[in-house]
Design a protein around this nucleic acid. Sequence first.
DNA 1: ATTATTTAATTGCACAATACAACTATATGC
DNA 2: GCATATAGTTGTATTGTGCAATTAAATAAT
Lengths: 144, 144
Amino acid sequence: MGIEQHEQIELELAILIRRLGSMTSEHAMDRSAYLLLRQLSAVKTAGVKSLAEALQLDVSTVSRQATALSRKGWITKLADPLDRRAFSYELTTAGQEMLCDYRQKRTDSIGRLLEGWTEKDQELFSRLLHQFNHSVREDSKKST
Amino acid sequence: MGIEQHEQIELELAILIRRLGSMTSEHAMDRSAYLLLRQLSAVKTAGVKSLAEALQLDVSTVSRQATALSRKGWITKLADPLDRRAFSYELTTAGQEMLCDYRQKRTDSIGRLLEGWTEKDQELFSRLLHQFNHSVREDSKKST
DNA sequence: ATTATTTAATTGCACAATACAACTATATGC
DNA sequence: GCATATAGTTGTATTGTGCAATTAAATAAT
């Protein structure tokens, strides 16, 4: 029942996170950059504040990340015409390509990892991960 | 088949890692310390080399971590009587308590998160996470 | 309308986790 | 017994992060 299961899951998650943290560093893009690009891709355009909220990071962190990505030519910084304090970022074509490419690489890695898995287990894993993320999301809503 | 599933899993993992990365920082102990204590708890006694292998970290990293944990009084460093280069670490009582306490907190968090889940889904999730970590481990062996 | 407060963003500083390389001291192999 | 391998530490650098201070602009209060 419950308790041992939770302990087991707790352990697996701890391992998973550390392993995947180092796994992503194989490629050229780091996880944080990836997540920022992904977020920007999702919302099309956003300033550091809203990005920071979405990514649950400090604005200063996002500010630096955005500067870095901008230097790489993956995103562009646009002055907000209505609010002269504010800026919005959006993906460049190069950024879109990078994101797409990187996502493909990651997807391929996952595919390679799941080679020996049954189709059913893959589906289940996908569903349960989604479900778990949903639970985490709900939980963080509660505590806000 | 396959591809979309992998994209989905890739996405869910990206989200998971981001969310859980910030989740763990709530508590007093950091993840790396936790994993080291855990490992030491599992093997009872080990030097930095074997710990580093198990945790897949550089020995220097583990050396520093061990020094830090030793300073906190959670582990003790013992000279190896057979090999005067070598040392072994083991958990102190305080370390065992810390580990137990922290693990409990994490387990409780997980339990809270999984409140609405069926027993079956919890079991499945546990199994699949384990399976996934195994896959990652095998994969990293291959590339070594 | 002038002043005070809030807000968006940046930058300086600090810190933790990490890797790599250089080094020390000991052990092992030929 | 010398050459090489091994256990561990330490110096240096990088990266991702947060907090505090700062700037500049917008909004609210008097």
